[in-house]
Amino acid sequence: MPLQENGRIRPKGIDRVKRREFIKRASQATGLAAVCVGGGWFFHDREWFKYEPPIVHKPDFQIAPDNAYPQISLSRNQDHVLALRDALDAVGGIARFVRAGERVTVKPNVGWDRTAAQAANTSPVLVGEMVRQCLDAGAAEVIVTDVTCNEARRCFLRSGIKEAAEKAGAKVILAVEDDYLVMDLKGRLLTSWPVLRHFVETDRLINMPIVKHHSLSMCTVGMKNLYGILGGRRNQLHQEIDQSIVDLAMFSRPTLTVVDATRVLMRGGPQGGSLDDVNIEHSVICATDQVAADARAVEFLGLAAADVAHIVQAEKAGLGLIDYRAAGYKENLG
């Protein structure tokens, strides 16, 4: 029936919805509107991603001092395995540093895509022997890792460290993005930084640097090697290199520092590349004093520790002694 014109009353039921239908349709629309308003209210100014404060934790892996042993020892031997064993025995042997069931992280310098002979990375022979020593002492697990500068897979492969460490029974870990913990380093300069988990979540840390020239810090030995525990924007650290090295050494106290001075990179560091820049020294240093280790090691570079700013600052900060002989020094020149 057509609608009547001229505004007259229309017959009931033709152009009007039934009450039931009205309620249904009106509530559908209202429901959707309510969801929109509710959603808007719910999400308004809501912060899903809470700022997580950096973890405060001081990884101190040092062992109690014992006056029966020297703080630092140096051993020279054509056979680098024997040199390491000898130097290690002089400071008390592996049993003093690693106990049965402990998890040990070994931190060699694996910064660069270089071969062992080029002396930019720690000797794979020494890394392998160190892993073996730890496992012999009953370590539950030995992890070998480093945050490399060049591509991690190439560095671990071409340095020979992956092969040597795995052969010796270690677990080699290449750092990936979610392996980092954002930590408060509590340094004078360095505060919140990502640190590779395996350098914090472990029982013992053995720092295994190699002795190299560096144009800014003059040398890179033990304390500078700790740059490799960090992720993030490491390339900013150079701006205040001395303080950042000291902050790192204050933060991460290794159980033992084993310095590879079997080959020493005299120029073109820290990457090297030319064998002409490498001196053969056949020496290994073991030390419980980070500063003493660095102070002795820089002599291979023809430097005096007193001239190297970060070593001087580290001593001032109470990290150890530049006068390594006063710290107790034993030397076996073979």
């Binding site: 800014l216 090297g272 590349g273």
Partner: peptide, 21 residues
């Protein structure tokens, strides 16, 4: 940085892989 901002840096020298650099 060393040229314009009187700040130490030389990361480029550290990374330069040639010998001599």
């Amino acid at each position: 940085l060393p040229w314009a901002m009187a700040t130490r840096c030389i990361v480029c020298e550290e990374w330069c892989p040639t010998s001599p650099k």
